[in-house]
Amino acid sequence: MAAEGKVDPMHQFSIHPLFGSDSWNIGGYNIAFTNSSLWMAIATVLLIVFVAGGAKRQLVPGRWQMAVETFTGFIDGMLAANVGPNGKKYVPYIFSLFMFILFANFLGLLPLGVFGLHAFTFTSHFSATGVLSILSFSIVIIVGLAKHKLHFFSLFVPHGTPVPMIPAIFVVELISFLVRPFSLGLRLFVAMMAGHVLLEVLSSFVISSGNASLGLFAIAGLPSFILMIGICALELLVAGIQAYVFALLTCVYLNDAENLH
């Protein structure tokens, strides 16, 4: 692959077991500790370090504490705006969700290749984002049914729907409701994967043209490289926005469960 000067843009997403854990399993289900699991662990550890550093409980906060309090305040404000006073109890979950995704996205963008390491973005796997989206969706359904019992299904019949339209509207609303976990998980996975593929493709242009000739590098490689710098900045933005969107949509869905329409 490298000998031919070609880069496989999808190779970065491949999962492989680490530490000879291929055969770990529970009841026949493989639970190998993979590179994906490793980066989940790194994200978890860094997040714990980050928040623990800000939990000093000083009356006059330092910079670190200020940063952590800004994030909790941000999540608190988001829940207050979207769910209302009932949303306060979801702060731990939404905070964990937002920060976990944010750290995962940023960690995946770190230029660790310079040091011979390979950053892995587990949010570019729908098998990982799907877990988070199904978790959010399950919480919505459980809260909705626990709080409103069967009245929860009135969510699928908006106010003022004419009686003859109710069956059709119910089906449409039900489908749109059931699509939510998929859209939630796929949106994050697609956005992260697309950005990483784009960066990889552009970098392959730089490498291939550089290997071919100086002239080709000047007309194809260099513009690609400049474009990559811009797209790196864009990817940092996307990393933040996708974490925000995931948390925000979870808040919006929780609002449906808490307050119906």
Partner: peptide, 17 residues
Amino acid sequence: TYSSQIFWMLVFFGFTF
């Protein structure tokens, strides 16, 4: 990999939570 992904995701996200 799905079982490994789901398992470790639940472990680490659960730990984080």
